[in-house]
Design a protein around this nucleic acid. Sequence first.
DNA 1: AATGAATGAGGGTTCATTCAT
DNA 2: GATGAATGAACCCTCATTCAT
Lengths: 198, 198, 198, 198
Amino acid sequence: MNGFERRKEKKKENIRRAAIELFQVHGFSKVSIGDIAREAHVSHVTIYKYFGGKEELVRDIVVTISRDVTEKARAIIESDQPYLEKIKQLILNKSSIASQYRGELIKIVARDYPEIKRVTEEFREREINPMLDKLVEEGKRLKYINPDLSAQSITYYFMILRNGIYADKELLESIEIDSKLAYDINYLALFGLIEKQE
Amino acid sequence: MNGFERRKEKKKENIRRAAIELFQVHGFSKVSIGDIAREAHVSHVTIYKYFGGKEELVRDIVVTISRDVTEKARAIIESDQPYLEKIKQLILNKSSIASQYRGELIKIVARDYPEIKRVTEEFREREINPMLDKLVEEGKRLKYINPDLSAQSITYYFMILRNGIYADKELLESIEIDSKLAYDINYLALFGLIEKQE
Amino acid sequence: MNGFERRKEKKKENIRRAAIELFQVHGFSKVSIGDIAREAHVSHVTIYKYFGGKEELVRDIVVTISRDVTEKARAIIESDQPYLEKIKQLILNKSSIASQYRGELIKIVARDYPEIKRVTEEFREREINPMLDKLVEEGKRLKYINPDLSAQSITYYFMILRNGIYADKELLESIEIDSKLAYDINYLALFGLIEKQE
Amino acid sequence: MNGFERRKEKKKENIRRAAIELFQVHGFSKVSIGDIAREAHVSHVTIYKYFGGKEELVRDIVVTISRDVTEKARAIIESDQPYLEKIKQLILNKSSIASQYRGELIKIVARDYPEIKRVTEEFREREINPMLDKLVEEGKRLKYINPDLSAQSITYYFMILRNGIYADKELLESIEIDSKLAYDINYLALFGLIEKQE
DNA sequence: AATGAATGAGGGTTCATTCAT
DNA sequence: GATGAATGAACCCTCATTCAT
């Protein structure tokens, strides 16, 4: 990648960043190419030249985010931390995942551009699920996880938690501010609402 | 309410139903008044006469749903069932709540029409939260719920679960079809992912 | 005219009144048939049945007003008052002419419905102008009016004054409240702005 | 102002001109943005980019006209002509004022956009009235004007004449064609309809 | 390579008018 | 004869996309 391409890639990155930011604040349908161009300090036709159109820009963003999220998850899972720590981080880590993972965004986008749906599903199928399966396997081996629970259920459970948490900006902020709340949510996700009665 | 008004109310109900349906499938911003009119088999002008405009239609729908959900929840909480059964139903009941509660819809709508945000927040503040607080109180008294958890945390936890579950239509369908999955999700929400080690 | 027709005529009159009132307040283009129907406490289709449509309603109103104004002017001119008094009243009388003559309304309407233009012009041609011509004739005979002025000029002058006065609601109100102002305007119209120098 | 901005200003001017022209012919409410765009040979989107919307376009036009009229009046008043000549020109000058001053337009517009009313009233209050007051003062000093007449009355008288004259396109044309008519109207406005009897 | 402008489509809204009850 | 609803057109405005400079 020569200097020319590097500059171009930087500009693309900048456009992606602007788009994600705006999507998060105003919702996907409300953000126009013009808005993104303004936010990224480029001309809107530059966006067309670089990405081809709104759908392609969005696909590009979705792929970028998906890749990013996958890598973050892989880093956590393959790290050297104790098992519980890994789980906790996957459910509620304050790293950049929070600021990027936008289940909601992706879902809405998927509705508008069915082709993008396929992209994200492929990602989950091929990248995320295998990783989670292995994690669950390990959890069961370590007796952390009830062996009667299916891997699919647990995967779904993760999805529910992540979607539930990251779908609500205000909730996210509350969690970041209030560490007792963060602790409680973690506790609830890990050990459930109900105390097992002996 | 005479026959005249009853017919009118029926037509309004029909328009609401069509709108909700379309919002769920295509997302809020993508559904035009014309679409709703077509789906409801009325003229778009009728919608304007009955509701006044898109914002008012949406506010009406949001209020209707909110009221409905609240009543459903109250029915469960004030019913004569054992405590755990109530909790389970609140998290994952197959009744019409599932088909109506659209946290996601409301959240997106709130972004477009800030005034509607207030309506829903007032509902939560005034109706939902007090009910949940009492429920948590009861759970702690019965030693079902860890007394260290704050009521607010648990309220958020409920929100997360509900949002996470109802935000994903496919997930919802999977749960309805696959009873093992439903059981597992319930188990996870109640007793958590991690087995407490003795 | 039997009782039936009398009731019908009354209703029509009521509709006319409502329409004129609304036109005066909100301007012609801004008043819909629905508005008029509401103001007149009738169904809008009644208006269609009685008048045929918006254009016909307006034509009817214009004719009614024109006839009315003509009769008022005739009454003044053919009355037994001194000449100057007649002139004064024609320029600025507080009678109902003020509340009805709507040069502005008619002009705007004429733009929308060219056919109506003809109606009013015919009226002026056939009714108003002859009356004014005779009045000017008399004024010249009585040495009130400079014989070098053409009757047409004076007719235009009347038009200018009336249009100028009645086009501005606030001006009209000021005149009605402030009698010194009314006196001055009358003076200016009659004797001009400039004092002839001897 | 570089060439770039000059081209832009020229285009805006062109749009204003087209709008004024159409407003004069068809009345304000009947002219759509699309009509103006067509007349000005630009895209309607360009109008939105330049002016923001119909209300803003209209406000811009009103301000432009107001400023223009004020300047024209000031030029006459501050010129080196004899007093009577000034007055005559103010009442009936064939310069571009006639083709621009549109009291009627402004009044109708004011009804639709109350905010614009304020703009024009401010103009009158701050620019026009002081000028007229001084003119009247001078006229009284020179014994041209009856000192019993209030400045306010005379201001209104000017308004009446101007509104009466410029509200009627056909009248305006007649005056421009027929110089005897113009002379008579001027005479009537200056010296009144009635000869003072000695 | 960036910018301004044009196009064409779509959505929200209102209206005059007509139809059915 | 009055009312509610439907139709079809028009208008304001915004957007994605393309063209010309």
